[in-house]
């Protein structure tokens, strides 16, 4: 393999990792609550603005803020769930779909407007970067590599949590079937609140990484949510491994397309891939058949 191709693959993997992390929380939220959370990107945005503030104001390293934001946003997530989502959870499925879209869409517009009123800047980005590493012609951005490792650790931790602890198992039980979980005595509401807050915290944590790599604005939430929903669907709704793989596939595909075919075609490939995969496997790559 040529150095170019290796360079591109490495770049694609590093990019895909970031997609994966953000999609991760979204996937849990959907799996447990059966709710398309359109406000997910807003929490990512808030997390990134918070870690920007911590970096510029207090000089805190974004890798540390990625951990710091977790408890803050777990609290926010519980609050959000109790206030807005819990009341609609027991509606029949079609009403739930409509209600959840209206509620989360409304919430994200609210967050967007209030944030952009108080956060008056054209764009936000931080000047944090680590010196690159070079191996025989292949340059690896060490910032991105570190982030990927961090994400990998987080994913493993999450997976362990879901497999080993009681709460984790309850979450998976709910993903598999709400009714069944209820029947064996899992406190659905409490576990849902927890799962939602974990999803929010992961989004905010992803936001801390996001601002290290890219620019952020208060209005980026909804487009990002939609992009990450695609990643989640690619991997299969409700599957954590799936969303990481979905992210990696998308990252590599976009990078290769941009290099060999032209950068203007790289967004097309995401949707073509999405549609092809869904047609072949309507429940996503790692989604459970229902």
């Amino acid at each position: 393999m040529s150095a170019d191709l290796i360079q591109l693959l490495v770049g694609g993997v590093l990019l895909g990792g970031i997609y994966g992390l953000a999609a991760f929380g979204l996937s849990i939220t959907f799996g447990v609550l059966n709710v398309l959370n359109l406000a997910h990107g807003e929490f990512l945005m808030l997390g990134s603005l918070l870690s920007y503030g911590l970096f510029v104001g207090l000089g805190i390293n974004p890798f540390i803020s990625a951990v710091l934001v977790i408890p803050v946003f777990m609290l926010l997530g519980v609050f959000f769930y109790l206030l807005l989502l819990k009341p609609i959870m027991d509606k029949p499925p079609h009403q739930l779909l409509v209600a959840s879209i209206l509620v989360t869409m409304g919430a994200s517009l609210f967050i967007e407007d209030v944030t952009s009123f108080f956060w008056e800047r054209p764009v936000t980005g931080i000047s944090y970067s680590l010196p690159p590493m070079e191996f025989s012609g292949v340059v690896i951005s060490s910032t991105r590599l570190l982030i990927l490792l961090f994400i990998f650790a987080l994913a493993c931790g999450m997976q362990l949590y879901l497999k080993k602890t009681f709460v984790g198992k309850s979450i998976r039980a709910i993903v598999q079937g709400r009714e069944g979980a209820k029947m064996v005595g899992i406190p659905i509401s409490r576990v849902s609140a927890l799962a939602f807050s974990i999803g929010m915290a992961l989004a905010a944590s992803a936001g801390a990484f996001y601002v290290t790599l890219f620019t952020v604005t208060p209005v980026m939430g909804i487009p990002l949510t939609i992009k990450y929903l695609c990643v989640v669907v690619l991997g299969g709704l409700g599957s954590i491994v799936g969303s990481v793989f979905g992210g990696l596939i998308l990252g590599i595909a976009e990078t290769l397309t941009a290099y060999y075919w032209g950068a203007e075609w790289s967004p097309t490939i995401a949707f073509i891939l999405l549609i092809i995969i869904l047609i072949i496997k309507p429940e996503g790559l790692f989604g459970a058949k229902k």
Binding site: L8, P223, E254
Partner: peptide
């Protein structure tokens, strides 16, 4: 909307 410029 491109945010990643590795290929370019």
């Amino acid at each position: 909307k491109t945010r990643d410029f590795t290929p370019i």
